[in-house]
């Protein structure tokens, strides 16, 4: 079932190649449907309980894979460096992405700028497994997000609240992550966003039909998806957390707040001992309800990334406000 409600999609973006039916290399039939909602969301489901780690080189990708990452996010600079260096942050160099795809056997994700559907077309042609339409990069369109239904590859998008999450799902996102505040090593915004999304989902469950119409209006999201969320008691796609996770305890906090898993950006490779910290965060994500395990893996990790107090950031330095 394709969800209705395409408001907010770029009018000039090419429409999906119809039908979504191609022969794969492996079969000689033409009735294999690729890029369906179920295939995209199904991919997102497979990543649950696993940790997705930001990497900028093939060597880092190997370290992440060896530590037990379920996927890597290939990007040119980790968010902490984007923050430090300033300037426009864009999709990575295709050579770098190819290098990372070659280096590991786990799925590879990569980021595109909000609204930059050509960067997304490029990444899809490179064969990445998942695209992150990310506020960490400099937005390319201030009015429209990418029409994600038009792609075979699945997308993950950030959200600060339920309305934003549902608008992204209406545009075709197969996974939602909290935005948090990337590159700060400060988990407070991720906490705020997880509590907001899950709090609003709980509230929807208490509403009757007329109230759900009102809620859809308030959330600025299609009624069909609002109703589906009210019935399911959760999003129709996996909900992960991102943006400021730096320690094993941070990862477990996000899980206990309802995230099905976590993205870790600068937190690993900006720390003293990336391999050890990566392993510790994998274990804490898995055993998030077991404080004894979290305590054990938190010992002797060396220096965590230096965090940033959110009060020290001006509005223009906050990435979570990008997108809407």
């Amino acid at each position: 079932m394709q969800v209705s409600g395409e408001q907010g999609l770029a009018p000039n973006q090419p429409k999906k190649r119809e039908p979504t039916t191609v022969a794969t290399n492996a079969t000689n039939t033409s009735d294999n449907a690729v890029g369906t909602q179920r295939v995209k969301r199904g991919m997102a489901e497979q990543l649950k309980n696993g940790v997705i780690m930001d990497v900028v080189t093939p060597e880092q990708a190997k370290i992440a894979e060896d530590a037990g990452a379920v996927a890597v996010m290939a990007l040119e600079r980790v968010p902490a460096d984007i923050r430090k260096d300033g300037g426009v942050a864009r999709m990575s160099d295709p050579d770098m992405i190819d290098g990372i795809v070659e280096a590991v056997s786990i799925p590879v994700m990569a980021k595109v700028r909000i609204g930059h559907f050509v960067e997304a077309q490029v990444l899809e042609s490179l064969g990445v497994d998942f695209i992150d339409e990310s506020e960490v990069l400099t937005p390319a369109d201030e009015a429209y997000h990418i029409d994600k239904w038009a792609f075979t590859v699945p997308f993950v998008c950030g959200a600060t609240n339920l309305g934003e999450a549902l608008r992204r799902i209406a545009e075709g996102a197969a996974m939602i992550r909290s935005k948090g505040e990337a590159g700060t090593g400060n988990v407070v915004e991720a906490t705020r966003h997880m509590r907001s999304i899950n709090g609003e989902i709980k509230r929807l469950g208490t509403l009757d039909e007329p109230e759900l119409f009102g809620a859809a209006k308030e959330l600025r999201a299609p009624y069909e998806i609002v109703k589906e969320v009210a019935q399911l008691g959760k999003l129709p796609v996996p909900l992960f957390s991102a943006g400021g996770v730096a320690t094993p305890a941070d990862a477990a906090l996000m899980r206990q707040l309802g995230a099905q898993s976590v993205f870790v950006g600068s937190g690993i490779f900006k720390s003293g001992d990336p391999a050890k910290r990566a392993d510790a965060i994998v274990q804490a994500t898995l055993h998030y309800e077991d404080p004894a395990v979290i305590a054990r893996v938190s010992r002797g990790l060396g220096e965590a990334m230096v965090g940033i107090n959110l009060d020290d950031l001006s509005d223009s330095q906050r990435y979570a406000g990008r997108g809407w």
Binding site: A26, N32, A33, V34, T36, R38, V39, G127
Partner: peptide, 15 residues
């Protein structure tokens, strides 16, 4: 054979 049918863009459903 692992990933025999290809990467995610080649993932599919069929009867």
């Amino acid at each position: 054979r692992r990933n025999a049918f290809g990467r995610q863009t080649e993932s599919f459903e069929t009867g």
